[in-house]
Amino acid sequence: MSKSLLFIPDISGYTKFIQSTEIEHSQHVISELLEVLVNANTQDLKLAEIEGDALFFYKENEIPSQENLLAQIESMFTAFYSHLKMLEKNRICPCNACATAPNLELKIIAHSGNLQHIEVQGTRKPFGEQVIEAHRLLKNSVQSDNYVLISRTLALDIMLSPYYSSKIYRFRQGSDVYDDREVEYIYSLIDAKELKLKSFSEPKKVFFAKPPPIVKKKQFPVSAQTLLEYITNYSYRNYWAEGLDRLDYNENEVTRLGTEHACVVNGKHLNFITVSKEERLGSLLYGEYTNSPPIVDGFYQFYHFTPIGENSCELEIEAYWEAKSPIKKLFLALMGKKFFGKNIEKALTSLFRFVESRN
């Protein structure tokens, strides 16, 4: 029987992150990162299990070459830190989960050995001594939370020198004792600054030469951050946005600049993207843009959340529109404020009722 690869990417700082931040957003962040790691699988590894903050991959009866394994490791670190950079640059939420997500780190454990399997509810999973040993290697004496650790067994299999060095890797030797048996390994700390991070879409930030045609204000008996959550967490949208058939959005994603959602009204899709403009000092900001309504070429709606007290805030909604054709311009000049203003007033009233019911 040929040896198999065991491969465990593990998010460092997960426990502290989950315990000390907003639970729902922290869960979304971890879910996104795990998905990013799964998508960075370049070696056709099989996912045996999701273990909270870690992924357990394996490659049965095959071990990638030294070059391919190191490339796989680099791919996952690059994808992980690219996503954290995007979360940092595009975030709109001030909660602790979104603010501290860039502090998360990654460690990867790689091991090799002969695998056994067990079947649980029709699912075949790796089992045995080598699986246990790979997981034990997660508890090691490496003085970092950001590294790759390769067991000596695997290093010998792929002929990886304990002194291998490159731009990304600078391996050194280590060992720990598990159940009175010393297990040797090599490890390399990973400097995220040395990774070639992937580019991401720049957030859409807009500027307006004229004041907004529509401005509506209302005070709410809830904090500015909580009200921001009610509006940007699309799972709440059906409770206060009238006339919706449904809302299509990514349920495992925290809303940020560039995220998209679609409101389905009378069977028609209105596609929105999160945008930004210049923020006001002391206020939180959320903006949406759509070019779906046929009566406009573009419609912007910005929500300003200004704290009044610990459990109260003022919400100000600004609306802007774009129109190119003379007919659209004429309609909007005559009816735009009335048409859109009425809808915004209704939304504010429904939102207020929803907030009161939650309180």
Rank of each mutant, 00 (worst) to 15 (best):
I168F: 00
E202W: 00
E194A: 14
P213S: 15
S175N: 14
K216R: 15
K205T: 03
K196N: 09
I186K: 07
V177R: 15
L197T: 05
A209H: 08
I190P: 13
A192H: 05
A192L: 02
L228R: 07
E202H: 00
S235I: 09
D176N: 15
I168E: 01
S199M: 08
I231N: 02
Y239F: 14
Y185P: 02
K167D: 06
A209M: 07
L227Q: 06
A241L: 00
R170D: 14
Y234H: 13
L228H: 08
K216P: 15
L228T: 03
Y234C: 08
A192W: 03
N238C: 06
K204W: 03
F208I: 13
Y239D: 08
V215P: 07
L195Y: 06
F220D: 10
L227H: 02
Y185T: 07
A224T: 05
P221V: 06
S188G: 06
G174L: 00
A209T: 12
K193I: 08
T226Q: 05
I231P: 08
D180I: 11
Y187E: 02
G174W: 02
K205C: 06
F207V: 11
S223T: 07
E184H: 12
S165K: 15
I168L: 00
Q219I: 05
E202P: 00
Y164S: 13
I186T: 04
K217C: 07
Y185L: 00
L195R: 13
P211T: 14
A209V: 10
R170P: 12
R237E: 02
V206R: 14
D191V: 00
G174R: 04
Y178H: 10
R181H: 15
R170V: 14
L197I: 02
W240Y: 00
I231E: 07
A209G: 09
E229R: 03
A192M: 06
K210W: 10
E184Q: 06
E182G: 09
L195N: 09
K204E: 01
K218S: 09
N233Y: 13
K210P: 04
A209L: 11
I231Y: 08
D179N: 10
S188L: 04
F208T: 12
D191F: 00
A224C: 05
F200V: 12
E202V: 04
K217T: 13
K218P: 11
V206G: 05
Y239C: 08
F200K: 04
N238A: 09
S165Q: 15
K193P: 01
K193W: 07
V222K: 09
P211N: 13
T226N: 01
A192P: 06
Q173G: 03
L197N: 05
K167A: 06
S166Y: 11
S166T: 14
L228C: 08
E182L: 10
A209I: 02
Y178I: 15
Y185W: 05
Y178C: 09
Y164C: 11
Y187V: 01
W240A: 00
P221G: 10
F207T: 12
R237W: 02
D191C: 00
S166W: 06
S235N: 12
F171H: 10
R237N: 05
K210C: 06
K204G: 01
S235W: 12
